[in-house]
């Protein structure tokens, strides 16, 4: 009897410990975020006050409006939205097409291709930064280039340079293949007997059946691309009109020099993460699937 009570006490203590742990962790996750959103509302004096002021006494809501008049916020947001939408659409299409071919057709070289897709994921992105930059610059017949890629600036300083390197991803192809492989072959064969062409079968029958897969990949690509910094920064450093919101805020860092403009910086950064948070909260169950799809099953 004593042992049982002892164990009950221990498991109760374990439960308390568990929630204490989760709450402390949650505080460490949220407090810095709140500091950014609240920092945008603090007066310059509150920003450096000692003892520190966490919650502003007289919130400067105007800062969230000032960013739209004093910074090219709408331009940045528009660019982010355009680039993200284009990349998401392209990647959904190319991944679905390739994933479908690798899952549902028998042809010579299929297994080698699929293994190459898996292997290609092992190559880190930094290996491609320099060569792709110059491939885009010397792309023949575009941006004033002649057939040898000389004479102009190729795709540099265009949206194409931001978007094209993300048009296909090996991860996306892998993920879509996993979703297509579950489709019954009989369904596709029945359509073939009815005389439907392969493209019709793909767009009318197969694609609608993997909508959850498309949603998973879509939210994944959306979050990734909205947050993409290193490539976009590299190709738009000299083209302010093309910069997305995180890149624009980073490259304009020299303008945020005093406590008042730093509140603006925090407001702009706060706005930059809102679209992702909203999308994510609405669709997070699809995101889980995308992240765990690559993991081994226990």
């Amino acid at each position: 009897m004593a042992i049982v009570q002892d164990r009950k006490f221990l498991s109760k203590a374990g439960t308390v410990l568990k929630y204490v742990l989760l709450i402390v962790g949650a505080f460490i996750m949220i407090a810095p975020f709140a500091d950014m959103f609240l920092g945008a509302l603090r007066t310059p004096a509150e920003r450096i006050a000692q003892p520190p002021v966490y919650f502003p006494r007289d919130p400067q809501w105007g800062n969230y409006l000032r960013v739209f008049t004093e910074l090219p916020m709408l331009r940045w947001l528009g660019n982010s939205l355009f680039v993200t939408a284009m990349v998401t659409a392209l990647q959904l299409l190319t991944s679905a097409m390739a994933g479908y071919a690798l899952a549902k057709f028998q042809f010579k070289g299929r297994d080698i291709l699929f293994r190459s897709v898996l292997g290609a994921q092992m190559f880190p992105f930094f290996l491609f930064l320099i060569p792709i930059f110059f491939i885009l610059r010397y792309f023949p017949l575009f941006g004033g280039n002649d057939i040898f890629g000389q004479g102009g600036s190729g795709f540099l300083n265009t949206y194409t340079a931001i978007i094209l390197p993300f048009a296909v991803t090996w991860y996306g192809i892998f993920l879509m293949r996993q979703f297509f492989i579950g489709l019954p072959d009989e369904l596709l064969d029945a359509a073939r007997l009815d005389g439907a062409g392969e493209f019709r079968i793909f767009f009318v029958i197969a694609l609608p059946l993997v909508l959850p897969g498309l949603a998973t990949l879509g939210i994944f690509v959306f979050v990734y691309q909205w947050n993409e910094v290193i490539w976009t920064m590299t190709v738009t450093r000299t083209a302010p009109d093309l910069q997305t919101i995180p890149v624009g805020i980073y490259l304009l860092r020299g303008a945020f020099i005093d406590q008042s403009t730093r509140s603006l910086q925090q407001a702009a950064l706060g706005i930059s993460i809102l679209p992702v948070i909203v999308t994510f909260l609405l669709l997070q169950r699809y995101y889980v699937r995308g992240l765990t799809a690559g993991a081994v099953k226990g």
Binding site: P32, F33, D35, M36, V223, W226, N227, V229, I245, P246, V247, I249, Y250, Q265, Q266, L269, G270, S272, I273, V276, I277, F280
Partner: peptide, 10 residues
Amino acid sequence: ITNVVAVAYI
């Protein structure tokens, strides 16, 4: 899900 610029400046 936050962009790295926001994380760095936070």
